[in-house]
Design a protein around this nucleic acid. Structure first.
Lengths: 244, 244
DNA sequence: GAGTGGTCTAGACCACAAT
DNA sequence: TTGTGGTCTAGACCACTCC
């Protein structure tokens, strides 16, 4: 459907809202390459006339597309097709229990350690806490259908989650508990591939020296480091995957 | 500022738009714990009265907060404070050249292969193409300050990027070229840790059997698979990292 | 039936950009 | 000065939920 400058485009008579049909139309023109990156698209007034709707309806369509980063608006100047920003791949890493259940499999876990930890000075530096502060330490192995897929080695700031040791980690994951105890503010992460140390390999029930996918995750709440976690996954049976 | 049920709240006379002030007010109530997860917040009509604005203005505030996942709306029922969201870690993987340059280092690359490929049947299945279709194949090693950090093994659908073989990949990365040739629609990815095959280890200049961080990435454009790439990184000197 | 959100209108006034 | 987007209004009709 090519539309001449001043022609009128009929909206379909389905119960799809007008603003949504206009959004779809604009996305379609971009997708087809009719409107390319940087091009100006018709003004709100022009689109309102074209679709025989009020300007507010067009405004909503265009405003939403611009908040979704498909369009860029400049007051007084016009609306333009945004630059394809995607130079990056966004990877979403879900909590392990949630992920396993989403696959329709059974998640279970085994608590290997839950105690007031004996942190190194280096760890205190990472937490930015004084050596006097108590840090809790837990080690949990997560299973998918009885097969170990993650060793979660976690340190927790006792000031932000004082009841950490009292949790029942067979019914709630540390992640879930921490989310409720200390609202998340910032996350730093790192993903690497390393050879499994013997201690980890044993817990994952894989042969020593097999590659592991490791996620380091530091969560910050209210300006303080809430938790530092290292999650080890057997390279031969676990990977981060997804789409968008 | 605690507001009684029927009291009128004055909007400040700055030039901050009314809908934004209402958004801020609602977020504030949630932040302070006045409205907790699952609680109903006042109806649009009530908020309109409270702030002495039209319902459409309140509607915009509440609609945006709901698209930002702070609120949940149920038609006929009400508006509720959403459940805390982040169970997930979002990881952003930038294009390799961009990433290296962002670190202030020098990116360079070495073209090992660029040809009309000889795809296996399995590869054609992944592309969802007939065996008659031409698939291009390239292998490029990327360096950071002369040290190899990525082997990019890529297959490209010739129908979507017919000029692939004519590109000068010392000045543009395949990723960058493909972005301009075929507007991106969908991406699927997979990250895993594997032992480097000899061929890859040699290109990365690491000893055989060292763990590698591997990113598989399938990009889809206009309903067709545009490109399938496998990116190998030496586990001992490369990791995905970031924050948000 | 009363209350809720979902959408839409036909105006209006403003700030800003291009000319 | 004209055209653009940014915001807002005071209504309206509808679909849906809850009682």
């Amino acid at each position: 459907m090519t539309t001449n400058k001043n022609s009128i485009t009929k909206l379909s008579e389905t119960d799809i809202p007008a603003f949504q049909q206009i959004k779809d139309h604009i996305l379609d023109e971009i997708q087809k390459g009719v409107w390319k990156e940087g091009d100006a698209i018709p003004s709100e007034a022009a689109l309102a006339k074209q679709f025989s709707v009020s300007r507010m309806t067009v405004n909503r369509a265009v405003r939403e597309l611009s908040s979704e980063q498909f369009l860029t608006r400049i007051q007084g100047s016009g609306t333009f097709v945004a630059q394809q920003k995607y130079q990056a791949t966004l990877v979403e890493i879900k909590s392990i229990a949630e992920e396993v259940r989403a696959r329709g499999h059974v998640h279970s876990s085994e608590l290997h350690l839950l105690e007031r930890g004996k942190p190194t000075l280096q760890l205190h530096q990472q937490f930015r806490t004084d050596p006097g502060i108590i840090l809790f330490h837990s080690v949990i192995v997560h299973f998918e259908n009885q097969i170990p897929i993650q060793v979660e080695d976690r340190w927790v700031n006792s000031q932000l989650a004082p009841a950490y040791l009292q949790q029942n980690f067979s019914t709630i994951t540390p992640n879930e508990y921490l989310m409720s105890a200390a609202p998340l503010q910032e996350v730093r992460y790192r993903i690497e591939a390393v050879t499994a140390p013997a201690r980890i390999a044993d817990m994952l029930e894989i042969s020593h020296n097999l590659p592991c996918l490791v996620l380091h995750r530091v969560t910050i709440s209210g300006g303080q480091v809430a938790s530092i976690a290292t999650m080890w996954h057997p390279g031969n049976r676990y990977q981060f995957a997804g789409q968008f």
